[in-house]
Design a protein around this nucleic acid. Structure first.
Length: 478
RNA sequence: CGAGGUGUAGCGCAGUUGGUAGCGCGCUUGGUUCGGGACCAAGAGGCCAUGGGUUCGAAUCCCGUCACUUCGACCA
């Protein structure tokens, strides 16, 4: 429940950011811990954020020729075992079902940690001809990965996500899909989550188990740590060979399909919280906020106030704004704080004074500014204010990010940059030993390799020249 | 899985050298309030995480277990 102590506890968000994060997700009633360790109960307020993310993303998937489907939660263990690298990568974290209905199963099933194996199995049955390709499916589902340590939204044993699995006749097409989806994600993060991201290829070490290449979208959190907010994978023919997904091509020969997969999860909610929050709690971008505007009557007992407030709420609702009328019997100040903590973008106050002057008082969450606007045309006014907040939040995030990225020419600089809670751009010769050095010295990792020209001709880590130099983003990460 | 921390009312905590349980918030009822977490009054709510010791007596001391949590290693 919202309380005074909470506002004090998070007074300095930089002092203990992870703690602030945990407090805020629990106390704003986004989630509770589940009875099974590492699981979370997503409460309605938290789930509504996910629903908004789903709605926006799903529309983008459909617009790019994808369809939704659903595949089973339980996967026979033997299916998982077919792709060697994949099994090895996921084995430590799969949950295994060995018994059901009081009897031991003939073959144990894994609870899906991801669904490449089952998609591939079905694809092998469905695909005959090049005419069946491409096939671009997505599913909204839950998966289970038995992680060692967990944090709500960022890493839980069970999480919700979407996973797209596509198969194509050619390598080029499948690679293009992988890259296109990466951009779809980062556009989505920018336009909907108001969150700038870095995109690029993952290092060999950070690659998805079984993939030929993995691409990632990294977002900067307010404490200067990075969060992987989405990934896309190009599998080449690794899975199609393991699962026998073949088609008869125009040239009358059998060929293996080329495959991609991509996903984002409820972790995006965590990303939004950690990218925009402040001392008072959540700050939600209007496009994902469960409640975009809250109407709070002031002196509700006085004649006409409650009527006016509910009339206003109705007017905003008619305009398609997600609005809530808070007519609870609490003092206005109490409500102000609660809704601020919950990150509602706009608060509208209606009191006798406003009514008399034909205005409403509003406060925007992103800047905490308070002003008035005329009651006439209120719906249009609030709608455009929401747009303004959405774009302002992005500008603010972008400015923050850009001022927290620095070039590291050598290891001394890199250490300093990371300690200043910034991201570093390094020049890297792609030697795993250099990558290991980042980790060993600074507990930092190569997040992604950026599509940029090297800013010097030697590797930041080892100082040697090389013909394989690329710019990489190095940061400490969640 | 390693290292710390914490388990006492729904939440946050106090509880002194051992003597049988308290505070704030929240909740219920009634009343006054209402422009930044209002006030008064009356209530309800506890196997002090758990199992074993020590003791006349344990929330308190000792040992074990479990849970949660933070930091590292691993991952969306």
């Amino acid at each position: 429940m919202a309380d005074k102590q909470f506002v004090k506890e998070i007074a300095d968000i930089n002092a203990d950011f992870p703690q602030w994060y945990t407090d805020v997700v629990l106390k704003t009633q986004l989630v509770d811990y589940g009875p099974v360790k590492g699981t979370m109960v997503i409460r309605p307020y938290g789930y509504a954020i996910w629903e908004n993310i789903q709605k926006e993303l799903d529309a983008r998937f459909k617009a790019t020729g994808h369809q939704n489907a659903y595949f089973p939660l339980l996967i026979p263990k033997s299916l998982l075992d077919k792709e060697a690298e994949h099994v090895e990568g996921f084995a430590p974290e799969v949950a295994l079902v060995t018994e059901a209905g009081g009897e031991k199963l003939a073959e144990p099933c894994v609870v899906r940690p991801t669904s490449e194996t089952i998609f591939s199995t079905m694809y092998s049955k469905w695909i005959n001809s090049y005419r069946d390709l491409p096939l671009k499916l997505n599913q909204w589902a839950n998966v289970i990965r038995w992680e060692k340590t967990t944090r709500p939204f960022l890493r839980t044993s069970e999480f919700l996500w979407q996973e797209g699995h596509t198969i194509h006749a050619t390598r080029e097409e499948s690679l293009a899909e992988t890259i296109d989806m990466l951009h779809l994600y980062s556009d989505f993060a920018r336009d909907v989550l108001a969150m700038p991201t870095f995109i690029g290829q993952k290092s060999e070490k950070e690659k998805f188990a079984g993939a030929e290449a993995t691409y990632g979208m990294e977002a900067m959190m307010l404490d200067g740590k990075s969060l992987q907010a989405g990934t896309t994978h190009h599998f080449g023919q690794n899975f199609s060979r393991a699962y026998g997904i073949q088609f008869l091509d125009k040239d009358s020969t059998h060929k293996y399909v080329w495959q991609s997969s991509w996903g984002v999860s409820t972790r995006l909610i965590g990303a939004v919280i950690m990218a925009h929050g402040d001392q008072r709690g959540l700050v939600l971008p209007p496009k994902v906020a469960p409640v975009q505007a809250v109407v709070i009557p002031v002196a509700a007992h006085k004649a006409g106030v409650l009527d006016k407030a509910s009339e206003l709420a109705e007017c905003l609702r008619a305009k398609g704004i997600r609005v809530e009328l808070d007519a609870r019997d609490q003092s206005p100040g109490w409500k102000f704080n609660e809704w601020e903590m919950k990150g509602v973008p706009v608060r509208i106050e209606v009191g006798p004074r406003d009514i008399e002057q034909g205005v409403v008082t509003y406060a925007r969450r992103d800047t905490c500014d308070k002003a008035t606007m005329p009651i006439g045309g209120i719906a249009e006014g609030i709608a455009s204010l929401l747009d303004e907040i959405q774009s302002n939040m992005y500008s603010k995030s972008l400015a923050f990010r850009d001022s927290h990225v620095k070039l590291a020419h050598n290891m001394q600089e890199l250490g300093k940059i990371l300690d200043d809670k910034c991201f570093a751009k390094v020049v890297w010769d792609r030697d795993p030993a250099c990558e290991a050095l980042f980790k060993e010295k600074f507990q930092a990792t190569v997040r992604v390799m950026l599509d940029e020209e090297p800013f010097q001709d030697v590797c930041t880590a080892c100082g040697r020249k090389g013909d394989n130099l690329s710019v990489a983003l190095v940061a400490r990460a969640y």
